[in-house]
Amino acid sequence: MTTLDELPIRDDLRGKRPYGAPQLDVPYALNTNENPYPPSEALVKAIGEAAAGVAGSLNRYPDRDAVALRADLAAFLDSDTPGLGLDVDRVWAANGSNEVLQQILQAFGGPGRTALGFEPSYSMHPIITGVSGTRWVNAARDDDFGVDPGAAAAAIAEHRPDVVFLTSPNNPTGTALDPAVLAAVLDAAPGMVVVDEAYAEFRRAGTPSALTLLDGHPRLIVTRTMSKAFAMAGTRLGYLAADPAVIEALLLVRLPYHLSAVTQAVARTALAHGAELLGTVDALRRERDGLVAWLRGEGLDVADSDANFVLFGRFPDRRRVWQGLLDRGVLIREVGPPAWLRVSVGTPEEMNAFRTALKETLS
């Protein structure tokens, strides 16, 4: 059989590995930051009816630009952050936030251009950057996983990136972005500034969203997803808010009919039931805060978290700890800086299983 090395793939792809967390059949999967609460029977029925409603017209292409869905997303963002005044011309949607990021780089990155981020952060940022032919520059974070405003501005002045990635709350650390950092980056960046807010709904009270800065910053893009707080990871729906000119730029690179009729129908149904789906967020926040306190009580280092996961350590051999948990039926993520591990926040039952397995592993 032909091997990958024998194919004429791009040289910059040789030696690369596909992105992805381990997919293992375990009693407690706490490694992909999903919302652990499935949709109710009533919502399952509504989603089924929505899919059936478009099934009879699947011989036709869907709404090419998902106008009705984008209008619903704009209304949701307006309700989540009052005063935005968003409309369909300032919102875009695609197959998960990763396709949103890919389209941004296709429009504003590419050969001869540079994207800059602050690692450790979402590992798909440099991956998608590289696949788009854009050069990646890492401006490292502080020891506490924060970003210094002055250092950020200096890095931008040095590299003059076409795209800057910020993440709040940051994955895998869970830390929220200091507003002073965003202000410094917006002031210094010559190109586009992307704030990845995939976990924004989980942020603690008083933590601002970059959405409030859209007016007056036409090169600011704020990305969101329905995969996390909305408990719709299987729907694959990501979206962004930005200036109308940004949406026009993305239309130049989006594939025609990129969002299926079924995806649009399911996502709109989920938004219509948003109060139910987001009703678990407060419980997950409490579970997260309790987990942070417990881990610190066990003598471990823990990063402050505004997300639905917690980064904890430090371990001389984190692989041994990861494997010890897996041997006890608990799958977490070996990701981020060396000596640290990340666990998703689950149900009380799942968190109890994690605590028990961790205590046994460390003892």
Results as ranks from 00 to 15, higher is better:
residue 162 D to Y: 00
residue 164 V to M: 06
residue 164 V to H: 08
residue 165 F to R: 14
residue 165 F to L: 04
residue 166 L to N: 03
residue 166 L to I: 06
residue 166 L to W: 09
residue 167 T to Q: 13
residue 167 T to F: 00
residue 169 P to M: 07
residue 169 P to H: 10
residue 173 T to L: 05
residue 174 G to I: 04
residue 174 G to K: 09
residue 175 T to W: 00
residue 175 T to C: 09
residue 177 L to V: 01
residue 178 D to S: 13
residue 178 D to E: 13
residue 180 A to Q: 14
residue 181 V to D: 04
residue 181 V to H: 08
residue 182 L to C: 01
residue 182 L to G: 01
residue 186 L to A: 03
residue 186 L to G: 02
residue 186 L to V: 05
residue 187 D to Q: 14
residue 188 A to E: 07
residue 192 M to H: 02
residue 193 V to K: 14
residue 194 V to I: 11
residue 194 V to G: 00
residue 195 V to Y: 12
residue 197 E to I: 05
residue 198 A to Y: 12
residue 199 Y to Q: 14
residue 200 A to D: 09
residue 200 A to K: 13
residue 203 R to D: 01
residue 204 R to M: 01
residue 207 T to V: 15
residue 210 A to F: 08
residue 211 L to C: 03
residue 213 L to V: 00
residue 214 L to I: 07
residue 215 D to A: 15
residue 215 D to L: 03
residue 216 G to N: 08
residue 218 P to I: 09
residue 219 R to Q: 11
residue 222 V to Q: 12
residue 224 R to N: 12
residue 225 T to A: 04
residue 226 M to P: 00
residue 227 S to K: 14
residue 229 A to H: 13
residue 233 A to E: 11
residue 234 G to K: 15
residue 235 T to A: 05
residue 235 T to K: 00
residue 237 L to S: 04
residue 240 L to D: 02
residue 240 L to N: 05
residue 242 A to G: 03
residue 242 A to E: 08
residue 243 D to A: 10
residue 244 P to A: 09
residue 245 A to V: 07
residue 245 A to L: 13
residue 246 V to S: 09
residue 250 L to Q: 11
residue 251 L to H: 15
residue 252 L to Q: 14
residue 255 L to Q: 12
residue 256 P to Y: 12
residue 258 H to N: 13
residue 259 L to A: 00
residue 261 A to T: 09
residue 263 T to G: 01
residue 263 T to C: 06
residue 264 Q to F: 04
residue 266 V to D: 01
residue 269 T to H: 05
residue 269 T to Q: 03
residue 270 A to C: 12
residue 271 L to D: 04
residue 271 L to G: 04
residue 274 G to W: 02
residue 276 E to M: 04
residue 281 V to D: 06
residue 282 D to P: 01
residue 282 D to I: 04
residue 285 R to I: 10
residue 286 R to I: 05
residue 286 R to G: 07
residue 286 R to H: 14
